[in-house]
Write a protein that binds this DNA or RNA. Structure first.
Lengths: 146, 146
DNA sequence: AGTACATTTGCAACATTGTTACATTTGCAA
DNA sequence: TTGCAAATGTAACAATGTTGCAAATGTACT
């Protein structure tokens, strides 16, 4: 499904900034930082508009925001070509060295039993450590993608 | 165990700022924001020193930093009077309304099987929703503690 | 107690990230 | 084509986090 269809399907206006955001994410296999998005979006990137669209696209469920760390936020399409869904039902891995965020599709998020009176909304699981590249071959470490 | 003993036990220098931080956290049942800490610490609070001590106290394992949200970071003593340990082995609840972070001591963090080559370090589980107060009696909502 | 030295502190300056107000433009439906 | 709500972009601001450096302080050793 292309960007235009995605917006239409969610009943949200088609604007160049939104199309650009969605297309940037479509071209990437793992969650992207604001800076990576900015690079992809080029002229169509405006910081304030970006933040507002992160808000609106999240609200309708088109994208998902992943907070790996208080200084590391990444974004991903909810239905990307890999057929998986980012809406919080799988865990994310965060590499402490290269700061990459990787979807752990095979690690499902369990349902937690909250105390009486609490209302569940959603759950984030962030597993931290070293990714394959940084662990096995530290000399080939990727530059952090900030 | 008092603040002085805690520092000594971890082989880290005893300074007024650190004692003040530890004592601030000792007096609180749930993880505190920087602002709450600041209030408790009074004169002894300095922003830069605070950030540096968050770093050093975390490194040796005296405190634990909980990132509920990219704009909500809280801090807790690893061994508080409740006898529980904050070093990432239990989940935390984050109330979307009052922004409180509550330790879910009864919800243990499972051990996750990472793909070949990955090295595990630690894991954060943040469960979001409405806390008891905000869910049951929205009219009595606590002011957000920022 | 006094000294030596590494650690810690606090200031200044800066970088990054996130938010609000408001006037203008744009998307879309009638 | 027109009307209007929604979205955009500028400016201004607020909050959060970091670095360099000189001065102060904690602690181990005599």
């Amino acid at each position: 499904m292309n960007a235009i269809e995605i917006l239409k399907q969610h009943n949200i206006k088609k604007t160049p900034a939104r199309l650009s955001m969605i297309n940037a994410m479509k071209g990437c296999t793992s969650p992207m930082s604001e800076n990576e998005m900015k690079t992809q979006m080029g002229e169509l990137y405006d910081r304030i508009t970006f933040y507002r669209n992160v808000q609106s696209l999240s609200e309708v469920g088109i994208i998902h925001k992943i907070v790996a760390d208080n200084t590391t936020v990444k974004y991903a399409l909810n239905s990307c070509e890999h057929g998986h869904n980012h809406t919080a039902e799988h865990a994310h891995f965060f590499c402490k060295t290269c700061r990459a965020v990787i979807c752990m599709n095979q690690i499902k998020i369990q349902s937690y039993q909250l105390p009486e009176g609490f209302q569940f909304s959603d759950c984030d699981v962030i597993i931290k450590g070293l990714c394959k590249k940084c662990n096995v071959m530290p000399e080939l470490q990727l530059e952090p993608q900030l």
